[in-house]
Design a protein around this nucleic acid. Structure first.
Lengths: 272, 272
DNA sequence: CGACTAGTTGAGGCCAGTCAATGTTGGTGG
DNA sequence: CCACCAACATTGACTGGCCTCAACTAGTCG
């Protein structure tokens, strides 16, 4: 793996325009001019070793540089802002550098359901590839920072770089598989199993992102958890309390501490 | 769209080996030698205009020929035979020429759930791309006929053919979106809504495949429908009876006739 | 014919949904 | 800093839809 030491941008979040609520940020700021010969100051930078972003895997240094040039300048998305809406044109994937998003499917009758949470290192926008149009909307759960990856450019590079091409296929396919696991959860698990599985999944993702796997702060409301798990918020709340009472976790609002991961796995119906 | 008149193979199903129950057919028969200059006798053949298989879209005739060469000789898969199992190496996608398959996710605790049904024109095996290993298993619901698409070859051609590359991305992305719709179904719909939506989806797929959309024979058992919809078989049976009593459908075992598509759409919670 | 699989229907129980009241938290403005 | 308000969260009582268990029927295949 190429070691990328970067001169990082100012980490302060810079929103391209005035930060209204639920404003759509379809367009990133214009890509800055790039000095091709300098491997420092890379947008890939610290993502090389992060979970999820397998895009650079197996690329040679020259290709890495080219890939890096595809990334837009990082920019901020404020809490509750909409990155893209359903039925809007697809142009870019987005890499999350910092923060958390939810992706929401909207049914015609107004029913809506959260179909995924994405955090640092994850990629947003894969749903748009299918018909050049987004099928769900992505909303920031907290102030976040992302890079846009114009898909045209990415695709062009993928034509020349077999490794990148393969990584892109893999990315989408993995997301597909993730979705199927969620189907099993939604189709056959009890409320307690769902919540336990959810917490374990979050823990694993925090761990891979370099945070504590046993103690973290939820970015989403009970209602959002409920939507994701196919439950009602009261049920989620009650189930949190039950897991607490059983000594498996400690909960204080959104602060969660996993006390007995093994028991939690058992509660989720997983072995070990 | 290129009009492909083909000299079709004998439609009789030819299984490569003895046809045992749930035998895995990981390897298709060796690809036959092909005469490059002859656009007839194509494996793509009658699939050009079928729903689902968007792979050839936008390809020029020369590329079409190359794509056609990637397809293996069609071969049969008998009812209940397993095309591939979970956790086995991934090498090929498969195009269904005839028949129906189910894809099943197996949880570690033995719980299993059907995550999709594939019929003529659909592609199987996309789940394997993510980690070069299948994550679910594909089982034929009836005697079927498929072509293997060795992924290495397909990928190599995709490197040279931008349209094919794009079509491949699209294919996977669309499957992803389909899965998300299913999540909404599993997460927020009543038994009656689920079954109504299921029947409407089947109807649409039959329609696109050139069959009647209002009258068809189910290829799956009540239990398999239940697994797919996150219900129990008794509930599915009862719900069929209810829809029948309400005059929306006619059911006789697996033979189904949609009597009032509009009402059915309303029952599914869809507008129109 | 018996054994088996698939499907239907009924009776009763339980888990999660619904409705409602109350408590807690966090952001805003005085 | 505190008061206030709205959003978020918890808990209780009750309801209801789906699951469970079970009996029975119909069709298939040796």
């Amino acid at each position: 793996m190429v070691q990328c030491n970067i001169t990082r941008e100012d980490p302060k979040i810079v929103t391209p325009g005035p930060a209204g609520r639920r404003r759509t940020l379809s367009e990133p700021p214009a890509a800055r001019p790039r000095v091709v010969a300098v491997p420092d100051n890379s947008h890939l930078g610290d993502w090389c070793d992060l979970r999820g972003l397998h895009l650079p895997e197996g690329l040679d240094p020259a290709a890495l540089l080219e890939l890096d040039a595809v990334f837009s300048t990082p920019y901020g998305v404020k809490k509750r802002e909409v990155l893209y809406r359903a039925a809007t044109p697809f142009a870019s994937l987005y890499v999350i550098r910092l923060g958390t998003f939810k992706t929401v499917m909207l049914a015609e009758d107004g029913r809506e359901q959260i179909v995924g949470y994405q955090m640092a290192g994850d990629i947003l926008g894969l749903d748009g590839i299918g018909n050049d149009q987004h099928t769900c909307e992505a909303v920031a759960l907290e102030d976040s920072e992302i890079c846009a990856l114009p898909f045209e450019k990415l695709d062009e590079l993928a034509g020349r770089e077999p490794a990148l091409r393969r990584n892109l296929y893999r990315l989408i396919s993995r997301r597909l598989n993730r979705g199927r696991e969620l189907m099993v959860l939604l189709g056959s698990m009890s409320a307690e199993q769902r919540l336990a599985a959810f917490l374990l999944d979050l823990a694993e993702r925090f761990r891979r992102a370099g945070y504590s796997a046993s103690e973290f702060v939820l970015r989403m409301t009970r209602d959002e958890i409920a939507s994701f798990l196919g439950l009602k918020l009261e049920t989620v709340s009650r189930t949190f309390s039950r897991l607490h009472a059983e000594g498996l976790i400690q909960v204080q609002g959104r602060a969660v501490k996993l006390l007995d991961a093994a028991a939690l796995r058992r509660a989720a119906g997983q072995s070990g």
